[in-house]
Structure formats: structure tokens, C-alpha cells
């Protein structure tokens, strides 16, 4: 049976010291504990979904998009979540200010042949 698509984006938490990483490295940047996604030799890191409120650190509107994005422009930004994790993603509003609060959700960020790719999209707070 096909696996259900996991639409979440995760930070990964070291099982030994609790340090959060995004994206997941193969060893903890804090205590050097190793990560094993197959869980055969070591444990995998705990997955912590990245969502909820975050702060916009900086942003841009890009007109020259890479091949495959037939859009006039897209907005991108760097955000910081309340747990200190930072991430880049697409911003789904044109009304932007440095430092503004945003809500992180996940959605289709890219379509490749026969498949949707999910990632972080930031929306203005209601």
C-alpha cells in the first residue's frame, strides 16, 4: 500500500540533550549524539512539527524565479519560531513588515512530475 503523504515539516530533537535542529543533521550539534533514521543502530531524533506563530526576520519578493515556477513573483522570508528554530519558506501575503508575526502552515510548495512537495508557508495572523 502507498504510504500516506506526511505534509508536516519537522524540527528534530536530540533524544539525549533535547537540542532542536532544522533540518535534521546526522549528529546532534550540541552533544554529538548520532541519529539513525532507520533506527537500527541508534535512535532516530524526535520529530517536532514546525508550525504556529513565528516572527518575520527578513523577506524579499522575487521576480526572477527558477525554471519551473511560471509565476510573476513569489514572496520568501526567514522566520523565527517561538522555540527559537529558524526556517525559510514561502510567504502567502504581499503586505509585509520586518518583525511582523506570521502563522506557519504547510502546503504544496512545489509540484514535480506526479507528486506534490509540501513545505512551510507563512500566513498573516488573523
Amino acid at each position: 500500500m502507498l504510504k500516506k503523504i506526511d505534509k508536516n515539516v519537522y524540527a528534530s530533537k536530540c533524544p539525549k540533550c533535547g537540542h532542536l535542529h532544522y533540518p535534521a543533521p546526522m549528529r546532534c550539534h550540541e552533544c554529538k549524539e548520532r541519529r539513525d533514521p532507520s533506527k537500527t543502530v541508534f535512535a532516530d531524533f524526535e520529530k517536532v512539527p514546525l508550525r504556529g506563530t513565528c516572527k518575520l526576520l527578513t523577506f524579499t519578493r522575487v521576480y526572477a524565479l527558477p525554471d519551473g515556477y511560471d509565476l510573476k513573483y513569489m514572496n520568501f522570508g526567514l522566520v523565527e519560531f517561538e522555540n527559537g528554530i529558524r526556517a525559510a519558506g514561502q510567504i502567502m501575503t504581499d503586505d509585509l513588515k520586518l518583525g511582523m508575526p506570521l502563522i506557519a502552515k504547510t502546503g504544496v510548495v512545489k509540484e514535480v512530475i506526479g507528486k506534490d512537495i509540501y513545505g512551510l508557508q507563512f500566513y498573516p495572523c488573523e
Partner: peptide
């Protein structure tokens, strides 16, 4: 990369800051 981010995008964000 999957977000459509590019080097110009990072340079733009850097410039704004």
C-alpha cells in the same frame, strides 16, 4: 531549494536587513 528559493532570494533578504 524546494521552496523556489534561489541565491538572488537570499541576497534580497540579506539586503533588506
Amino acid at each position: 531549494y524546494n521552496y523556489g528559493l534561489t541565491l538572488p532570494a537570499f541576497a534580497g533578504m540579506f539586503t533588506r536587513l
